[in-house]
Write a protein that binds this DNA or RNA. Sequence first.
DNA 1: CTCTATAAAATCGTATAGGATATAGTATTG
DNA 2: CAATACTATATCCTATACGATTTTATAGAG
Lengths: 232, 232
Amino acid sequence: MQDHGLTVDNEARASGRIQRANSLAGDVYEAIFAQLMSLRIPPGSRITVDNLVREFNVSHTPIREALGRLEGEGLVLKTHLIGYRAAPQITRRRFDELYELRLLLEPAAAAKAVATLDEERLAALQEAAGVMARRVGKDERLRYSNFARQDAIFHDKIMEFAQNELIRETLNHQHTHFHIFRLMYHSRVTEEALDEHEAILAAFAAGDAGAAAKAMRVHIENSRDRLLPAFE
Amino acid sequence: MQDHGLTVDNEARASGRIQRANSLAGDVYEAIFAQLMSLRIPPGSRITVDNLVREFNVSHTPIREALGRLEGEGLVLKTHLIGYRAAPQITRRRFDELYELRLLLEPAAAAKAVATLDEERLAALQEAAGVMARRVGKDERLRYSNFARQDAIFHDKIMEFAQNELIRETLNHQHTHFHIFRLMYHSRVTEEALDEHEAILAAFAAGDAGAAAKAMRVHIENSRDRLLPAFE
DNA sequence: CTCTATAAAATCGTATAGGATATAGTATTG
DNA sequence: CAATACTATATCCTATACGATTTTATAGAG
C-alpha cells in the first residue's frame, strides 16, 4: 500500500457500514476539484499529469481518469499532445448568459417553492439566508468566504424546495464556474445582498408566490450589477 | 502502429490543414458516445473496459480516460469495483423535470430570437422545420429518425439565434438523454409536430415575439403529452 | 433437492516501464 | 546576428503484471 496524500475513509471500515471505499480515481478527482475551487490551480493554468503523479504519489491511470471526468464537466480542457489546463476565467459574455439563465430559472423556482413551505423549511431557509451571521465580521476575506458559501446554500435550498432536481443540478453545475469567478475578484460582503435575502424570506413567510419571484429577480439583477465592475 | 477500428482523419493530412489528429482517447470517447446514442449500448447495461479493449484494439488507458469523460457528462455511471454502466433510462420524474426546464427556457428564447431574424435566418429555420420532408415517408423507422434529427436542429437553430450559448449548451446536453429516451419508445412521426413547427415559423415570419413564445410553449406541451404514454 | 461454503474465473484498480511524437530551449553553423 | 540542428522535456499511448473484489461455478452438507 502506497502512501498518497488523499483522504482515506477509515470510518466506513470501522463502523461496519457497507464497505465500498472510494476509488483512487474518485479521490484524485475530488482533490483536483478542490484545488480548482480554491484557486490553488488558477483558471487557465496548465495541469500536467506528471506533476499530479508527484504530488499525490499515485500512478497515471487514476489521474487521467479523473482529468477526463473533469473535462466532461467542463472544468478542465484538453488539447491533444499539449495536455490539460484549467478552464479559462469566465468571460463577460458568459457572465451575461449565466445571469440570463438564472433570471429565467430562479424566480420561477422561488414561486414554485412557496407552495411546499412549512415551518421547518422556512426555518431552514431563515438560517441559510445568513441573517444571523450578518455582524460577525472580523477578517474581511474570511467573512466573504462564509457569505459566499451561505449564499450558495440559500439559493440551493430554494431550488431543493422547488422540486426540480434537473434544474437544481444545472444551476449547481454552473455555480462551480461562477464560484471561481467570484473568488478571483473577491469583493466584500454586501449588506444589500443580505437585505435582499430577507426580502425573499419575507415573501416566503407571507406565502406570496408572485412576491417571491419578484424578490428573487431583483436579488439576481442586483447581484449581477454588483459584480459587473469586475470586468472593467 | 496498431490497427484499431476507430476513424482516422486523413483529410487533415491531405488538405494541408493544421495537423492535430485526435487523441486516441478522443476517438474512443466518440465511438462510445455514438454507441450510446444509437442504443448499441442500451441504457443501464454494463460497459466493461476489457470488452472495449478487445473491440477497439486499444489499451486500457485511453478507454478509461474516455469513460471518465462520459461519466463527467452523466452519460455513464461508475461504481467502485463494479465498473461502468450506461446511464439508466430516464424516469417519469426526470421527464417532467426536463419539460419544465424546456418550458422555462425555449419560449423565452424563441421570443428573443425574433429580434435577430433576417431573410437568411428565416430560410434556415424554414428548412430545419422539416416542412419539406413531410411526405417523404416510406420506412417508418427511418422516417422517424430523420424527423428526430431535424427536430433537434430546428430547436437548436432557434437557440443559436437567441444568442445565449450557455442555455444552448445546457439544452443540447439534456437532449442527449432525451434522444436516447425517444429512441427507446420510438414512435411514429406526428404530423402535429410538423404543424406546430410551422406555427412557430409563422410567428417568426410575422416578427411577433409574443406569438413565437406562445407557439413554442404550445409545441413543447404537446410534445410532452405525445410522449407521455411511454410511461404506461 | 436446496442451501451453504469453498474454489475458480472475470473484472477492476493500480503501478511501472518504455516507445513515439511534439514542443521548447540551446547550441552550432553560416 | 540569423537560421538551422540538436537536445531536453513533456505528452500520449502501449504493454504488462499483480493485487483486490466481485461474480460464477462447483462440491459438500443438511
